[in-house]
Design a protein around this nucleic acid. Sequence first.
DNA 1: CGACGTATTGATTAGGCTCAAATCCTGTGG
DNA 2: CCACAGGATTTGAGCCTAATCAATACGTCG
Lengths: 248, 248
Amino acid sequence: MTVRQDIHSPGIPVLCLPCEARHRGVCGALDPDHLVRLAKTSSRHKIEPGVELIGDAEAVDSYSNVLSGVVKLTKSLSDGRQQIVGLQFAPYFLGRPFKVESAINAEAATAVSLCTFPKATIDRMMRESPELEHRLLKQTLNELDEAREWMVTLGRKTSLEKVASFLLMIARNIDSSVDPATRSACFDLPLTRADISDFLGLTNETVSRQLTRLRVDGVIRIENNRHVTVDSISRLEQRCGGRGATAL
Amino acid sequence: MTVRQDIHSPGIPVLCLPCEARHRGVCGALDPDHLVRLAKTSSRHKIEPGVELIGDAEAVDSYSNVLSGVVKLTKSLSDGRQQIVGLQFAPYFLGRPFKVESAINAEAATAVSLCTFPKATIDRMMRESPELEHRLLKQTLNELDEAREWMVTLGRKTSLEKVASFLLMIARNIDSSVDPATRSACFDLPLTRADISDFLGLTNETVSRQLTRLRVDGVIRIENNRHVTVDSISRLEQRCGGRGATAL
DNA sequence: CGACGTATTGATTAGGCTCAAATCCTGTGG
DNA sequence: CCACAGGATTTGAGCCTAATCAATACGTCG
């Protein structure tokens, strides 16, 4: 994939110009010079749902930005029990700096497009540019917050609250139209029922039952198994199990 | 608390000389100059068990290193359900850079000694010293790995496996004598049964029952409710639910 | 020794799991 | 366009693990 500089936009590689991740995610931390160097070695990929991106305990020599779609991070026990430990939405960074990979599995949950670059390039730039490491620290702190939020959900919520919390989280991440004004949302679930159950520590039967319960109660509508409409976000929030004193 | 330089150890503040956290944790990233500046504004505290260090949604203007003891990080739902989302052992760093605190509560689980310094000092040093931010990133990535490990435990393990996993984690963190040779361990539980249940997403009754089960099965011995002996770590590991293909 | 908090043990209940069957969507080929 | 195949999802019946409610034992500290 050839990359040349665009004369009109000083120093920004053409590959990056239309990229919605350029200002967000890690790329936003890079100056034009670094961006050019990174773009030289980066390439875009389309990934089909279900394709494994990073195998458990596999050596990883590349990082990626998620440009669209959702990537699920999973961990499993030897008898097959599985837990999704994170969902990576655009424009987030995918990879684990400084370490032989931590027994995590990454798999495309939906169709995914990635911008991939060699580990070595980023590792070198990280040493040169504190701003890059700063962004990475920020993202990691966010992921830690999210992980801890889900620990509460996994450990202390009922199955109904778990499913409601999941829908709310997806709504906030996928549907850009979720604004305080309308208080409604509408989106396609990026996960199958089985994936949702692996995310919530439930079985797919239980997930299904609680979804129908929310549907019967008029909190959500479901079309074609995947498309969800939430007329009143507040009603959904009420089923999530009160968040302690503090707002999300 | 006065601090002066020690003539024999070039540039290291006396306060820091005997500190076991000086080379580990964030302090290890500081050059003598920074260490001196930090030590000038830092102070040591002893905290009683049960004392709240950081309130939910409270503004935090200081960071701390945990020098001894265990700090529990909790999140709660409004109806009182609580989940421990992390345990901070020495010599780790306590605090959340760049953010109004994320609805987390920190409380001394055991007697704790802290080395506390103003947020502003660290924030400034972080801008000056990339190495400091690097350490912080590493610690945060570790905490993220741990959080994800516990998500598997919370979501997919049975109560027996949860309790066994908890004991194993404590053994590895507390008892320095856990070596592959002897394969035995011996430690005081830093948490009450109620705390353990908040950590594992169980009730204290269930925790108690599974502890007795492990005791009856000869996997552990318990004296005075708190002191635990594990004769064979491997036997304990067997009850933790197989880790998928990869070792911890 | 007595009192209080912590932990254990017991009996019962209930939420979520398992196994099993029916239904719905998607996509394919005639 | 319709029929069919295959997987995903929903629904149902019964069971089991962990929660709940309740009482007893233990340990610590005055």
